[in-house]
Amino acid sequence: MKTPAIVSEFREGLAQGKLLIQHCQDCDKPNMWPRYACPHCQSENLGWLQSKGEGVLHSFCVLRQGAPAGYEEDLPYAIGVVKLDEGVQLLVRLEANRPDDWSDYLCDDRVSFVAVDAAEAERRPCAQFRRSPG
């Protein structure tokens, strides 16, 4: 099956260093994850906005073993849920503070989107975040 447009467009954004969030052209609300119809007003008139990439870390974990097939080489890695300032949430990878060390992170930390190069965005098409300075 061909990759659906909402998926390929989101991933193209990541490859260009942008975090896209779906935007309903009719009710003006943001949606994450992107949907085939707006869950607020059921409109199919949907487009994209570039997120400012700023938000709050709701929770996270550091996976040290038991990666799904194909992810073993990434271990250890950290995954978190970010509540973006635009009012939507998404699952992300978290950049280590130091190699293999995420001990500086706390729940409710401010975090920022990190642009990765196109090859990494293709290898792991998910958003990456880090603790905001200050």
Binding site: C61, L63, A67, P68, Y71, R124
Partner: peptide, 13 residues
């Protein structure tokens, strides 16, 4: 899958 599998999430996570 299309949105979250690329993070490497699994059940213990």
């Amino acid at each position: 899958g299309e949105w979250e599998l690329p993070t490497g999430i699994q059940f213990n996570a």
